[in-house]
Amino acid sequence: MTENTIAVEHVGAQHLITEPPVRDTGAAATLRRSARRRKGLKGLGFHAFVLALTVVILYPAVWMFLSAFKPSSDIIGEVNPIPTDWTLDNFTKALSGIGGVSFWTFFGNSLILAVLSVIGIVLSATVSAYAFSRIEFPGRNIWFGLMIGTLLLPFHVVIIPQYIIFNNLGMVNTFWPLLLGKFLASEAFFVFLMVQFMRNLPRELDEAARIDGAGHVRIFRSIMLPLMRPPIITASIFAFIWSWNDFLGPLLYLKKPDLYSLPIALRLYVDQTSVSDYGAQMAMAVLALVPVLLFFIVFQRYIVDGVATQGLKG
């Protein structure tokens, strides 16, 4: 409880929350190093196991990556992941664009949509989750139940009514239909995710801040948001990737090729009614993976690194 009290005293100055964890002293580090040596064997076992798992898990990904270097007619039905004829033609073709629209236009559209989705979802989901998890008001449970209820309906049957709404609002051929819902917390998955994490933060935090005279806006901004970093990063990663890969929304709402996102373009290489270029599709799929992979690699460490919750709790 003592540390907690300290934390609360610091809330006004907003210090402790962002303060880095206490550094190891030299002596402690030495101790840890020898402990690590003792754990060496255990570490070896860990790496052997995880590496084996990696091979199994990555095999399909490697197959996919290498297929992008195969001629189109060597891809389907081919067991061997290693190309017999290496070629870069697929990438040249994928990068050359479609119908006068450059690859980078598709790429840029996907990027804009993904980034705005992340912003929208993080803002709206955390705010809504705060209401659901930290404020007591009449109707809360009913709204919460309804929110969970929106998860249950398969989305295919709301495609048409939703299209009619956006069409009548004149929003077809804009990014609005794809983004509005994100800024209005329509994706219950994210709200619920935030609720689960927020409810698990100790109540002492806000109660003490209240005594300090902080209102909900300040508690939300200064206590909740910093402590919610792992779920926020998690949600950002999902929001980015799901938007990046979303296909049906762009298909229905983006009619101008200049507005197309990558998944629409990707599918154009395979046409059952004429000639298909599986190689170019594979190459574009590989290229499309690069940003999401980078996004994940950059942000995954924030899920697990440097959150000061430990300092605040206990």
Partner: peptide
């Protein structure tokens, strides 16, 4: 002329939805 194009399956998903919304090209 504002063109738009989709792969075969997607083309019909998009057209059918537009037909329901009375907004065909």
């Amino acid at each position: 002329v504002q063109t738009q194009f989709q792969a075969w399956d997607d083309y019909w998903t998009a057209r059918n939805t537009e037909a329901a919304g009375k907004a065909l090209p």
